[in-house]
Design a protein around this nucleic acid. Sequence first.
DNA 1: AATATCTACCTGTTTTTTCGATAAGTTGCT
DNA 2: AGCAACTTATCGAAAAAACAGGTAGATATT
Lengths: 278, 278
Amino acid sequence: MLSLRQLEVFLAVIETGSTIRAAEAVALSQSAASNALSELESRLGEKLFDRVGKRLILNASGRALQPRARALLVQARDAEMLFRQGGALRLGASTTIGNYLLPRLLGAAGTDLPCERVEIANTDDIAERMLRFELDLGLIEGRALHPDLLMTPWRQDEMVIVAVPGFADQTLECLPWIMREPGSGTRSVVEQQLLSGLEGVAPILELGSSEAIHNAVRAGLGVSCLSRHVVQQSLQSGELQVLAPERSIRRQLYLLRHRQRPDTAAVARFLACCPPEA
Amino acid sequence: MLSLRQLEVFLAVIETGSTIRAAEAVALSQSAASNALSELESRLGEKLFDRVGKRLILNASGRALQPRARALLVQARDAEMLFRQGGALRLGASTTIGNYLLPRLLGAAGTDLPCERVEIANTDDIAERMLRFELDLGLIEGRALHPDLLMTPWRQDEMVIVAVPGFADQTLECLPWIMREPGSGTRSVVEQQLLSGLEGVAPILELGSSEAIHNAVRAGLGVSCLSRHVVQQSLQSGELQVLAPERSIRRQLYLLRHRQRPDTAAVARFLACCPPEA
DNA sequence: AATATCTACCTGTTTTTTCGATAAGTTGCT
DNA sequence: AGCAACTTATCGAAAAAACAGGTAGATATT
């Protein structure tokens, strides 16, 4: 039976590129690391690295083993942490969720949710971090279609058209639209679901973040379609108002998990506090 | 870091109920097994069994760990077998697939697919076996909705209405229907998709297998709706004919995999030979 | 009450893992 | 070409871990 230690050394060699630095990384001597690696290779009956000169170069077999080794080690660590209270939570969230929704949720949960960190990034980055087991749970607005990732509906985000009071709310096409840059997930949702019925809408301004757009709209520069979570306060104070509420977009927010990884205790706690809704 | 050996002992103790028999199962002495278990418990900081007298009774913590331990061990074995050629394939298939479709596919693939065995059972049994890692891949007609199981479309099965030549094909309601017993997946598919438009159809005969129905239909006892794979030869020979071909049912067949388990080499070979079709 | 059975612990022994040193080979610089 | 700096693989010794046998204590069974 191969040992977890061997896999640990194997991954360390991949990451550091040498047995010396790998040995240091896993607190072994170089010779022990070299031994562990060749032991693993002989047990699998397959060389995992091509020895070209003094260099170790991961070959096809090694590349095949790598993701499985990573999954095994992470699962072993998770199992070890199953009953430990100290299991901190590493969340990945897309911008709207991370900036507006999560702070409120985590604040409400108080100390029940020891959250190590929340990384805010785009969907693809979060997916990649999930694949490397660097995050425990993803909360995304877009779609992540990797076969090793599991997307399940979490909550819904309502996106509303907002403007300062005084904007005519009759012909949406003629209003001065402010939007996110092309390529943004938010932009594409707006284009597909809201503007499909409206012809010839061209933004007068493109900004790189929801908060920037929020401020532009507050400054009276135009109208935009933003998550209700972003503009909640401005709506309550009356600073902004909703135009054409019947055209609001409900977009689904998703939980992103790694298929080869059962929920951590911390993830389970999070989901107990913030369960999926409808 | 906990060791795979410890998990092996842990599972053996669960299965055998005692450290003595567990030790035998994993080729250790009783003392070593007892040691491994308490080592595991102390490493997790949590007792996994309640000691009731001389008895070991799995407690809540142990039950929480059990599925993870199983998954870890199976994945470790899979990794070890990654490069071995001897990785045999343990398939689970529902009746129509296992009896008619698979023999042809495996026969065509010849020796490329060393298949250890094909277990033919109903969807629920296959799902349960998959959960215990006793099968590598499931091929099912129905639905398996366990969160740890992944269902993906594989192929389609065409179910046609058949009878011996001479049966009037005008009013399907009035024909003598032969069906599977209630509770069968095939029966429910027929009822939902075929008979939803037909009122008051009552079977004159209920039989427990497709082959039995096939023979009954050939004997001229009535009509039935069967997979084309079952009646293929009878249709070619002209012994049976298809009634109302426009009412044929296409039902989806699914691959069933365990989420916490990457494809075995043998599974990958199978899928390469018999890939999903539309 | 006697017996059989089981877990857990202790002790000495075997096996595995690890280390430091060293040989052999490669790379890059002069 | 020659030298210096690194790196890998191997070897024997040392350290650590795993292991078997025996046994005490405890609990069902008879």
